[in-house]
Computed example of a mutant assay.
Amino acid sequence: MLTRVIQQFNLKVLSVNEVEDSHSSTVYKCNLLNGEIIFLKIPYTKLKYERELEAYQILKDKVSIPQMLDYWSGDETCPGAFLLSELKGKPLTNKDLPKVAFQVGELHASMHQIQPPSQLSGIRNEFPNWANFVERQFYSFAEDVQKVINENLYRQALKKFENMKLQLPPSDGPSFIHMDFRPANIIIDGDKVSGVIDFESVRFGSTEIDFTKIYRDYLSFDDELFQSYQEGYKNIRPLLDLEVVLPFYQFTDAFNSIGWCKRRGLEKNASFLEENLSILKRMLI
């Protein structure tokens, strides 16, 4: 498939390396004969391709993202592919300075400022039925989770979900939500945020779900980072009370992630499975 995509884009390639930590697409970093570096992205499904394509069209000139140089709608062997420019830098880490966290907050809020256009093709607007969307996701993964954890823990989790969802504040939106806003998808160049990548999971919905992964993998390690992020976010738009919404979404994210590991393979995702089992058990004490 890679050879087919390279031919489709008529690329003169010197070397190709697969990018790690890409879970819903296959991504390749390509060094071209002319010295240019570009990225090839092949989503796993047609739906993910359609979401990503529309996201690039919606976000262009509003949020810092790679330039989409070309795209291909695919054929019977390939769901589609994107030719993307390089964002200079490396993925965000919790060693980056608080001034970077401030910019990450601004970047996140800038996405959340974007409201759905009058017509959508690949991206769904889940906001009008937000509670149903969250519930549908949870119980979809529940079928997989039940095969991984013991019955008592499983029943406790279902009961906690039903109790916690009743305590949520009114939904905040409709907003463009990334659904996978985590350090691996945020590119930093020195002390500047270059932009955000990976849009195969995006929706329009309530912002409340979109803070979970950035908190889990970045903000929770340092109060100063967390404060700077919040200040940056509030510099663009009002911020929900995260102390109210984070516990619910931390819980559902851990639960859903266990189901994700079952679908994608327990052995190859063993460490991620253990991490989320630990979070789930801690929240059920």
Rank of each mutant, 00 (worst) to 15 (best):
Y229M: 03
L240F: 05
F221K: 15
V244I: 13
P238K: 11
Y215M: 08
F248E: 01
R237G: 05
Q227K: 11
Q230N: 10
L239F: 07
Q230L: 06
Y218R: 01
L219F: 07
L225Q: 02
F248Q: 02
Y233A: 01
R237E: 06
Q227A: 15
F221L: 10
D241A: 13
P238Y: 12
R216Q: 08
D222Y: 06
G232W: 00
E243K: 14
Y229Q: 01
Q230V: 02
L225I: 10
Y218Q: 01
D223I: 10
K234V: 05
R216K: 11
L246W: 03
Y215E: 06
V244G: 05
Y249G: 00
S220G: 11
L225Y: 05
S228V: 12
N235L: 07
Q230I: 03
L225N: 01
D217G: 05
R237N: 09
L246I: 06
I236V: 15
Q250G: 05
Y215S: 07
Y249P: 00
S220C: 15
Y229T: 01
Q227V: 11
E243L: 11
P238G: 12
G232L: 03
Q250I: 07
D241C: 12
Y215L: 06
R237C: 05
P247N: 10
D241L: 12
L239P: 00
L242P: 00
Q227G: 06
L246T: 06
Y229C: 00
N235S: 13
N235I: 05
F226V: 05
E224F: 14
F248A: 00
S228F: 14
Y229P: 00
